[in-house]
Design a protein around this nucleic acid. Structure first.
Lengths: 244, 244
DNA sequence: CGCGTCCTTGACACCAGTCAAGCGTTGTGG
DNA sequence: CCACAACGCTTGACTGGTGTCAAGGACGCG
């Protein structure tokens, strides 16, 4: 079973076999969490870092009026911020969308591994910065992109991220979200998500059915979305490889 | 002349006089930058950290269609991310809104000071996490809050941040932004910003004229905006003190 | 079989964008 | 000192994107 964390970090930083062994050891003890459960709730004070190995999780915040905004999707290889415990109380929650295999790593274990492995330290810092860049890009989309292009942009981003950890082919990947979840990501009503999906399918850009995204022409989709991969700060594109 | 960086960091972390001396030494050499200039442009590879001592700066991104989204405001005491050089090319730009006094700190100087002063290291990490929390809150607002409440929320946040560095009284602060700038922060057109400002003034919540924000009843404004200060992760509220 | 969840569709209302014109202030050059 | 341009703010009319409400259908599950 491959380690998505290593797959991700290697997009940026070369890891020696010693580094990889250390990372593999870190994720030995995992547990399965059901879908639609909280990993960390707003107000808690986490004492460890959660790493998603399988499944889909998300950061979100509930407002007083009952609305929910999803602020990030955590795909395999992603984890919540290593320094989060510095803040004390969580100002948002992290939950699972599907059943997940999750690793809990104590702050001490993290400190130890980054102290012993400079490459891993750099790679973790890089991953944190990328998460932040993604957040900024979501904000840009929310403020400036129309609903259809914003949605297309999200699919482009997720395509790259899933591909990086070996979970997407050149033209499709699984995304177990309801239209209502998508709405909470994109700041749209569920009804409008439905309309925009039909819009995109009508243009031949995307189909999204029963949790599976199919992109007949990823290049055309990127053009429509105005997608520029630079903000993910991955190295060369993966499109030359044939993952699957 | 007080050091806004110290004022900010002390909201969370107690700093010894040795720590403060080190921070004061760090900002000895500053330069003045005109308004409406870039400090760092997209695509550059920064080799130092920029710290804003006076004035107002902002992170932004231009889209292919000419639109601009502002992703963060940098008030005195704020700096761009300490690890940003790890990413290589900047995926966005940082510019000044007004003339600014800016300090440029080499990566080495940063590494040195955090290695020698654990409190400062913790405080810097905390500041980075708070910047991220602010970004998340902006995303939440963009996705879920109506234009008027989103605008009110922004003013509440800035009020707290300016107060922290001694640049706001209980009921007002200077915010040298045009309505068009405000639109690029809030994802609104300039015309609609104008309408919402009148709306808020009509409710007696806020007036915003020639770069000055006046809030007759900050508590009422917070309630209208649904503002909860927790995400800023400052300690106790400052409202008991009388900063002016 | 019946229930719940999610998706689909249509009608309608409204928030917010666009376009355009006019106004006030500031700064600059003749 | 005045004319003029530049800029930012204000206002109105109109359009359109998106939300809301509501009803019905498809599907899975107990």
């Amino acid at each position: 079973m491959s380690n998505p964390l290593i797959l991700k970090l290697e997009r940026r930083e070369h890891l020696s076999s010693v580094d990889k062994d250390a990372l593999n050891e870190l994720v030995l003890t995992s547990r399965i969490v059901d879908g639609r459960e909280d990993l960390i709730s707003e107000g808690e004070n986490p004492t460890c870092v959660r790493l998603v190995m399988e499944g889909l999780a998300y950061r979100y915040k509930h407002l007083a009026n009952g609305r929910r905004q999803i602020m990030a999707l955590l795909v395999p290889g992603d984890c919540c911020d290593a320094h989060i415990s510095l803040l004390g109380r969580m100002d948002h929650s992290i939950g699972t969308l599907t059943a997940c295999r999750v690793v809990e790593i104590s702050n001490e274990a993290i400190e130890r591994i980054v102290a012993d492995h400079p490459s891993i330290q750099r790679a973790f810092r890089w991953a944190t910065l990328v998460d932040e860049a993604i957040l900024r890009e979501w904000l840009v989309g929310m403020g400036q992109r129309t609903a259809d292009r914003r949605m297309a942009h999200l699919f482009c981003e997720l395509h790259v991220r899933f591909r990086t950890v070996g979970l997407a082919t050149r033209s499709d990947f699984n995304l177990p979200l309801s239209q209502s979840d998508l709405g909470d990501i994109l700041g749209l009503s569920q009804v409008h998500v439905n309309r925009m999906l039909q819009n995109l399918r009508g243009k031949g850009l995307i189909s999204f059915n029963s949790g599976k995204v199919v992109m007949p022409d990823a290049e055309q989709l990127r053009e429509f979305a105005g997608f520029n991969e630079d903000y993910l700060h991955y190295g060369a594109e993966l499109f030359s490889e044939t993952t699957e």
